[in-house]
């Protein structure tokens, strides 16, 4: 019979064990503190400071000047144009997103992956190109240029151009949120509804939409944020006609280039507040939906 008692020198002294380090399952305290500080410093420099400087500069000449800058007619026109664009673009792209997600996730057909890639295209392309293609189509020297001038229709350097360019740039947002979710949900509930006698529209309205509620809202939120803040595509297409074809971001550029810094930052601060509201809503939606809705591919 083997003596299974361990030799005395191997038996750990209880007190020694308590002092000895535990399993290395996390970094040392010093390392952790250092990493946190590095991360915070990085974020401070790149996120917080720019945020703060917008408001600091906007209020540099006092709150009176700040208010005046915002109610100045050109600024108001810019605000109106921005909101009008968002009002047109977001519902259209939301409807497109729902239709595209329905087609892609409820049916099987060849070329599905190609379709998804194409929907993602505006994402991978520089916004400048997004504006350029419409100049090529509708500009005075563009494909349809002569035709449009003949009929007195202005697209480029006018509001329609801005709307179309924004439509291009924000097209994927809603679809990209809906497609993975609806793929995961499958078709069972829709089949059940159909078997119970519901029509296609009844199924969409009563069964599908409630199931994708949060992702849909999230997509609309992102689409809206981008529609309001889009710069590159709109800059190419708008012609910078002050008071007429300037959206808020363009107005910011115009004011800044004219050295009206405080006014530029005043309008910018409005955009920043909208961006912060978007972030707050996004966080709230994620909490409401239970799981992080944020996509990994931005």
């Amino acid at each position: 019979m083997v003596d299974l008692a361990p030799p005395a020198d191997l038996v750990a002294d209880d007190s020694a064990r308590r002092i000895a380090s535990p399993l290395p399952l996390t970094e040392s305290f010093a390392t952790r503190v250092a990493l946190i500080l590095v991360a915070l410093f990085f974020l401070m420099v790149f996120l917080i400071l720019p945020l703060v400087v917008v408001f600091a500069e906007a209020l540099r000449q006092g709150i009176g000047a700040y208010g005046a800058a915002l109610i100045e007619p050109n600024a108001v026109a810019a605000i109106e144009l921005t909101l009008l664009t968002a009002l047109i673009v977001v519902p259209l792209n939301a409807a497109f997103g729902i239709a595209a997600a329905w087609a892609i996730t409820k049916f099987n057909f060849p070329g599905k992956n190609l379709l998804i890639t194409l929907i993602d295209l505006p994402f991978s392309v520089s916004p400048v190109i997004g504006g350029m293609v419409f100049v090529l189509l509708f500009g005075a020297q563009g494909l349809f240029g002569p035709l449009l001038t003949a009929h007195g229709i202005k697209i480029v350097f006018a509001i329609p151009g801005i709307v179309i360019a924004t439509l291009f740039v924000t097209l994927p947002f809603v679809a990209r949120e809906l497609i993975p979710l609806m793929q995961k949900q499958g078709t069972q509930q829709e089949e059940a509804a159909l078997m119970l006698g519901a029509s296609g529209w009844q199924t969409l309205w009563r069964v599908t939409l409630p199931n994708i509620k949060w992702s849909l809202l999230y997509g609309i939120l992102l689409c809206n944020g981008r529609a309001i803040g889009e710069f590159g595509a709109v800059a190419v297409v708008s012609g910078h006609i002050i008071g007429l074809t300037n959206t808020m971001p363009l107005q910011v550029e115009v004011l800044y280039n004219d050295y009206a810094f405080a006014a530029a930052f005043a309008v910018a601060s409005l955009l920043t507040l909208m961006a912060l509201a978007t972030l707050a809503l996004k966080t709230w939606l994620e909490w409401r939906a239970g799981t992080p809705v944020a996509r990994t591919r931005l």
Partner: peptide
């Protein structure tokens, strides 16, 4: 706050 660069209009980021 991480998503700020994504939500903030690029022109605002530029001038800031």
């Amino acid at each position: 706050l991480i998503d700020l660069p994504f939500a903030l209009p690029t022109a605002v980021a530029g001038i800031a």
